[in-house]
Nucleic acid binder design. Sequence first.
DNA 1: ATCCTGACAGTATC
DNA 2: GGATACTGTCAGGA
Length: 242
Amino acid sequence: MPPKKRKADGEVAVAGAARPPSTSLLAALSEAAARPLSWRKVSADGLDVDYCRLLDGALADRTLAALEEDVDYFTGDLAQVFVFGKWHDIPRQQCSFGDAGLSYKFSGRTVPARPWPQSLLALRAAVERAAGTDFNFVLVNRYRSGADHMGEHQDAEKELDPAAPIASLSLGQARDFVFKHRDARRPRPHKRDIPPVKILLEHGSLLLMNHPTNQVWYHSLPARRSCPGVRVNLTFRRMLRA
DNA sequence: ATCCTGACAGTATC
DNA sequence: GGATACTGTCAGGA
């Protein structure tokens, strides 16, 4: 389908009858998810992702404000990672929410899923509608500045449903997201020259990572000194029950 | 100045 | 049970 001009997003929302400022965030998110979305597909060998602007600027602002209010991030052990013989503070803030009984493994430890806060339930419903998939878990990453980042990795844990996409909602500072083919990062004899795929993840955007992307490509969020603002990212997943 | 790459251990998993 | 994966930081080069 033809891509929409970005400007239309905000103006369509304003064109109808004036909405009272008391419109709940839940209702506004529900309405946003019911609108037709303009998806941009990005494909490469083994890579299949879809990108769209799910929330217009004003709604993305409100959503980010609600999350900044509602979400507390891990501290202590859960905010550290053991890499190459040393403990480090992870270069970002992190926490997770999910249905009762779910947990996930990160850096060798099992992290419990907290119960969903209200604002996150509304957001989950909107993302589920846009993605056409039900999710039972979300990992929230908060990048405090352009120095915060995440290294190359795959989301291919055994407990993830391989058939379900992972839906990544971005709020706040736009940042580059980089996919790298697994064969492009092998040691030299067998290294293949496959160019990385970069996508700018904008305020209010939704990225779907479809099968088999996460089995074939690594992804990362590199540091960007010229992007100093706060970014909050939510990756909705479907976990298999143990 | 900024970004990208490779080297760096030890534990866990298959 | 030998091979592979996983994580972040730092130094060096483009």
